[in-house]
Design a binder for these strands. Structure first.
Lengths: 163, 163
DNA sequence: TCACAGACGGTGATATATCAACCTTCCAGG
DNA sequence: CCTGGAAGGTTGATATATCACCGTCTGTGA
């Protein structure tokens, strides 16, 4: 059976189990993050990038590159996070086209407290589910897929971001 | 370094590459599905399950189990899909608590035409990115994670669905 | 110097997801 | 009976994501 329009049994098993993990793992992690730290997965992602930047400060579009979100999503999300005091917007003095985003004290506290618990869950449900060899094989496979996606940056995609 | 509150280098590499794949692959697949077939990923998922059911007919809550969506999400989404003629609601004669969902002709046509193209992309970006051995290892790892998640069905989760 | 193209960012409208009630129906226990 | 609880399904309000458009600024080239 070399029917290119379908997957064979092994391929389908891999694909479906990947889809299952994607759904279950992210919903489980997000639910726990929300419950234990009051942060959504998106909040967490933004805070991680900011906390890794020098002085907890980044340009909005750098955040967009890091998260691979559209600029409007970034903007809306920052508005909400600023409203909750996790983050602060600072117009850029030199060039007022740009906008700096800085971590507030509350924001740093939030990520510092949330991260260990989150990481513990990642370890519990992801890392500890497999042996070190399996983990390495898994990482290699993921990198291969990511590379494949990056190399085939098909041009006719309307939204430039993910292509 | 046995600091349980962080990941070592290999673990972090695996986790971050997994996150990257999750983001890039799903956005790429969804964008192409939308452009080539006019279906969202969610539409596609519903249509796949319906088309695999006898007579293209399922109970709404069976769809919920299959997709792992909340019942309200199922209901809203079916309303939209019914509006586009992909699907039809039929109250159940025997027990009027239940609601049947059936695939329309248009719905079957849509999934029959969309599936080969979608599968081709899955093959292109996922299956063909690795060797058969890597694929098998990947599947095994995913199954291990899924099993871990299922076995640790932590009780104190407010939303029953994903726990 | 004066348009003007292009990059960054924001905004409002729409689409979709989530949350909290609610209604109906069936069934089990008085 | 009949009453209360549980399950399936729907609805409307809210939260979040996406889309199309607009505004600001800067650097560039006529």
């Amino acid at each position: 059976m070399t029917d290119d329009s379908w997957l064979n049994e092994d391929e389908q098993r891999a694909w479906r189990s990947y889809l299952a993990v994607q759904t279950k793992l992210s919903s489980r992690l997000n639910a726990h993050l929300q419950r234990e730290s009051g942060l959504s997965g998106s909040d967490y992602e933004v805070l991680v990038h900011l906390s890794e930047a020098p002085e907890g400060r980044m340009r909005a579009f750098e955040l967009g590159e890091a998260t691979r979100w559209e600029k409007s999503r970034i903007s809306h999300h920052l508005t909400r996070m600023a409203g909750r005091g996790l983050v602060e917007r600072q117009p850029c003095a030199e060039d007022s086209r740009y906008a700096d985003v800085v971590l507030t004290e509350a924001g740093r506290t939030a990520i510092v407290e949330a991260a260990p618990r989150h990481v513990a869950h990642v370890r519990e449900w992801f890392v500890d589910a497999m042996s070190p060899e399996e983990l390495a094989a898994f990482a290699a496979a993921c990198e291969a897929v990511a590379e494949k996606l990056d190399s085939s940056a098909d041009g006719d995609c309307p939204s430039a971001r993910e292509c």
